[in-house]
Design a binder for these strands. Structure first.
Length: 649
DNA sequence: TGATCGTGTCATACC
DNA sequence: CTGGTATGACACGAT
């Protein structure tokens, strides 16, 4: 459940990002902090979150019993938070964008039986249902309930029902709300929530199934407003904008687009690298926009929990993609501006269209001998690491020095999601579906080896060490896909290795050994597999190492600054103390002179301050003592004289 | 054009 | 012994 929660949290973050793009500010910090609060304190140490957690450890932690302090999910969380902050810093741009139906359906299993519209006592559901029946009245209700419920808002706009994001967003929102509800009902620690993973997953799938029905559902008899008030806090100005939007919205049309979640699920699962699903869910040529995914021949009954998780794992962009099925892709263009998605497109989704199974045949034309000598600098994109949650933030960071953060965020942990999708016992299925272009891999590319190929830019030659390596091919010009592939990928493909680099690197060692033994690989293939795995592991290790080094440098710099400040402070204190001491000394001298001036010697003359001084005894008595200026010299002279006399004697 | 930075890879030590 | 990790060193491309 920890994984599922992470996905839902991610979905919430992505929803927030999307809302931020249209000017709606959503504050989920409280929710996130509440969810991750036990983890934040763990992550105080430098590089604590950078160390990748081995997949087997992560598997254990994903069971929900504990969260490893070095769990890379922390990185992802912080990256998400950082991304959220960055998005917020962009302000509230008012794009000419209409975002459709952010309806929150609280669906219970019982509600699936009678999915017909009905009234509810709950504010949330009542407003949504009323919005369906009579949008105008519903809006009025919302406005009335708004001050009472705090931040309860129903965001609907004209285009929204067509918006692909709406469906996925509903899933995320709803699940998040359910989680929140459960947390309020049972204020148990996170570890307890994780134990109920199966139940929550089942409820999720039931909700998804229910969402496929365009009819508004009844919320459970739980005060959703309270949860949403905790979950979403919208500024007053945004609320006003939303009210104006809601006022003239045909919610019915918007909600009618909530269907096709199943298709979306299947599509997402196909994108997430399940080779077996590729035959069913294939990607359509993007034609300028990347948000076209089409699900073909996917039966809803085939939706498995793993696939559902795959949907949950799909981030913002993917959610937009998966909802683009069934005539909704055009609506997406109206849903959000191209300008908005241009940046999203740069996240690395350009490679989606290349995820065609025909790649295998095309690459089969590459002579193995042309690639077998390729050596290092393969430019692996292991950071994409398999199905780790893909988010705009992760790709956004790829261009900065902190790019490797996102890499680690799903680095070794990626196996938890992607490798789970890989049928460990049915690896033979990959023999015909070589899948180097996992969605995550495309999105998480942080290197310059990729992303240009899909933009039809001039060829990017693979850098190689020259001494050790040979050119890829003297005669054959590499295709766009070839250029986008790392060297290890090319080598693996040339050697007819039916596994992607990600799979090779991220699969557990037991499975890896089984692969080596059970597939009849030649020694060359085995060596290549081992090399690919070793390089991939070491690549991640190097990234972590560098991040730790940077952290150490940063920490030392901060410590230096702190020590310098402390030194300056101590120097200032010393100066102040010296001044104080000087002033006190002057006062004592003055008092001594005054006292001595009032004293008289035996002849009735005032005591000379040059010859006498005052000594304060331990008992508090003040004694006048004569000054003995040459005492030291005289005593020394006496001693020398005595020594001379002793020697003479 | 050299400097700098980011990244991948190798070699090696260590667990 | 093997697999994995950490890290210094090197090479390479990009800026």
């Amino acid at each position: 459940m920890q994984k599922a929660k992470k996905y839902f949290t991610e979905g919430l973050i992505q929803l927030t990002i999307l809302l931020s793009l249209i000017g709606v500010r959503v504050d989920i910090d409280s929710y996130l902090s509440g969810y991750y609060s036990p983890l934040i304190e763990i992550n105080v140490g430098p590089s604590s979150a950078y160390t990748q957690t081995p997949f087997h450890n992560l598997r254990d932690t994903l069971d929900g019993y504990s969260v490893h302090p070095k769990c890379p999910e922390l990185d992802y969380f912080f990256a998400s938070r950082r991304l959220l902050d960055e998005v917020r810093t962009l302000g509230s741009p008012r794009f000419p964008t209409q975002l459709s139906a952010w309806l929150v359906h609280q669906v219970s299993a019982a509600d699936q039986a009678d999915c017909g519209p009905s009234t509810n006592n709950n504010n949330n559901s009542s407003s949504s249902s009323s919005g369906l029946q009579s949008p105008g009245d519903g809006v009025g209700d919302d406005r009335e309930h708004l001050p009472d419920s705090g931040q309860e808002v129903y965001q609907t706009t004209h285009e929204l029902g067509h918006g692909p994001c709406s469906a996925g967003a509903c899933v995320f929102l709803k699940e998040a709300s359910e989680n929140d509800v459960k947390e309020e009902e049972e204020p148990a620690p996170i570890t307890q929530h994780t134990h109920s993973s199966t139940l929550e997953q089942e409820s999720l799938f039931e909700d998804i199934t229910a969402l496929s029905n365009p009819v508004i559902h009844h919320p459970p008899p739980i005060d959703i407003d309270q949860h949403w008030s905790n979950l979403l806090s919208l500024s007053v100005t945004d609320l006003d904008d939303l009210d104006s939007l809601v006022a003239d919205t045909d919610i019915t049309s918007a909600i009618s687009q909530n269907v096709s979640l199943h298709d979306a699920m299947v599509t997402s699962a196909g994108v997430s690298g399940v080779a077996s699903e590729r035959g069913e869910a294939r990607l359509v040529t993007q034609q300028g926009t990347l948000f076209r995914l089409e699900s073909i021949g996917s039966s809803h009954s085939d939706v498995s929990p793993g696939m559902a998780l795959g949907l949950a794992a799909l981030p913002f962009a993917s959610v937009c993609n998966l909802t683009g099925n069934e005539s909704s892709h055009s609506a997406l263009g109206g849903c959000l501006d191209e300008a908005v998605f241009d940046q999203i497109n740069q996240l690395g989704l350009e490679g989606l269209d290349s995820m065609d199974s025909q790649l295998m045949s095309s690459f089969g034309n590459i002579a193995p001998h042309a690639l077998e000598d390729l050596d290092s600098d393969s430019g692996l994109s292991l950071e994409s690491s398999s199905g780790g949650p893909i988010s705009p933030g992760s790709s956004e960071m790829s261009s900065s020095s902190s790019s490797s953060y996102c890499e680690d965020e799903c680095g070794a942990t990626g196996y938890s999601s992607d490798a789970d999708l890989v049928p460990s016992k049915g690896i033979a299925g990959y023999t015909t579906a070589w899948s180097p272009f996992d969605l995550s891999e495309s999105v998480w590319h942080d290197h310059s080896y990729s992303s240009t190929a899909f933009l039809n830019q001039p060829a990017v030659t693979l850098h190689h060490k020259g001494i050790k390596e040979e050119p890829l091919s003297d005669s054959d010009e590499p295709t766009l896909d070839e250029r986008d592939m790392s060297r290890d990928e090319l080598r693996a493909r040339a050697m007819y290795i039916p596994f992607s680099v990600l799979q090779i690197v991220n699969m557990p060692v037991e499975e890896f050994l089984e692969v080596l033994d059970g597939h009849g690989f030649s020694p060359e293939q085995v060596n290549l597999l081992r090399d690919i795995r070793r390089r991939g592991k070491n690549k991640l290790a190097a990234q972590n190492c560098r991040k730790r080094k940077l952290d150490a440098i940063t920490g030392l710099q901060e410590e230096v600054e702190m020590l310098q400040a402390q030194r300056d402070r101590l120097l200032r204190d010393k100066q102040v103390t010296a001044k104080t001491m000087g002033a006190v000394s002057q006062q004592i001298k003055q008092l001594t002179r005054d006292v001595l001036a009032r004293l008289r010697d035996g002849s009735g003359q005032p005591l000379n301050p040059e010859r006498f001084t005052l000594q304060c005894g331990a008992n508090g008595r003040v004694v006048v003592q004569p000054l003995r200026r040459p005492t030291v010299t005289t005593s020394a002279g006496n001693k020398t004289d005595k020594r001379k006399k002793d020697k003479r004697q």
